[in-house]
């Protein structure tokens, strides 16, 4: 997998050290996008949403991703709670240069069909959390006009602060954001913090990366929080059992496999194969 899925703004990003000598915002963001994050990746994710510090809901799912040719594909398969178990998503992001629209597919067991969902609008709340589908997307450099506004330290880490404004209404429609301010780790090329502004210019959401670990040689964000200031809610992603380069088969990422879903046994099998190797 050449390109990393930053999960991003959500902070679910992997990383390796990369050279960031260029001081140009787009170059920096391109380096974030192009970081080497292995050939594939899998993790068990806990997503908690809290309102005024009381737990609203907690969901668990498997996240698998892989680079197939120039594209990046990702499957999310819900494990718990029971009423949403086996819901699964398949997302395919094409190389930014192709200008091809992303693809999203969803399987809802209660409706028995794998349904394609328009990817022109990704503002929806992912599993009812404060993360939108757009926040899970791979960082898109060319959709925004970006400029470095200053350097700043985030938790004692030096970052570039980059202001980004959407280039078109399409981007606004897709993201729901009218401005982003992004804090990029100068060394590790990770997004450590991001602020989101709405149509009224109001700062309504903020992403904070809580924890970064080095797993199998890749810098990996293992905890991040999205805070919604308007609704006074926050959602936290916690990544467990993260593994890189497990040799996940392409077949797992086929639309036809979505209905079957990702079972615990599939994951166990993947881990076992990896251990044998």
């Amino acid at each position: 997998m050449k390109l990393t899925h930053i999960l991003a703004s959500a902070g679910i990003l992997l990383s390796v050290f990369a050279d960031a000598s260029a001081n140009d915002a787009n170059n920096i963001l391109q380096q974030v996008r192009d970081r080497n994050d292995g050939k594939d990746y899998m993790s068990t994710v806990t997503l908690k949403t809290l309102s005024d510090d009381s737990l609203l809901n907690q969901r668990q799912f498997y996240m698998l991703q892989k680079d197939i040719d120039q594209d990046e594909v990702m499957v999310l398969a819900i494990k718990a709670p029971a009423d949403v178990r086996d819901i699964s998503f398949l997302m395919r992001s094409f190389d930014e240069g192709t200008a091809q629209e992303d693809e999203q597919w969803m399987y809802l067991p209660a409706f028995r069909k794998v349904r394609r969902i328009s990817a022109t609008d990704k503002r929806g709340a992912f599993m009812g959390s404060e993360y939108s589908y757009y926040d899970l997307d791979k960082l898109r450099v060319t959709d925004f006009d970006s400029k470095i506004v200053k350097s700043e330290s985030v938790n004692d880490v030096e970052t570039h602060v980059i202001e980004r404004t959407p280039k078109s209404q399409d981007v606004i429609n897709k993201s729901g954001y009218y401005k982003l301010v992004t804090w990029v780790d100068k060394d590790r090329k990770l997004i450590l913090k991001q602020q989101y502004f709405d149509a009224k210019g109001i700062l309504f959401k903020q992403l904070n990366v809580g924890k970064v670990d080095k797993i199998q040689g890749f810098w990996t964000i293992t905890a991040s929080t999205m805070t919604n200031f308007i609704e006074n809610k926050k959602s936290t992603f916690l990544f467990h059992e993260t593994l890189y380069n497990q040799g996940i088969e392409d077949a797992i990422f086929r639309k036809s496999k979505l209905k079957r879903g990702i079972k615990d046994s599939d994951v166990a099998e993947l881990i076992k194969i990896s251990e044998l190797e």
Binding site: D83, L108, A110, A125, G128
Partner: peptide, 13 residues
């Protein structure tokens, strides 16, 4: 069906 419809609702932005 209701629960997953609501999930769609939540997902719809």
């Amino acid at each position: 069906i209701i629960r997953q419809s609501i999930l769609m609702f939540e997902n719809s932005g």
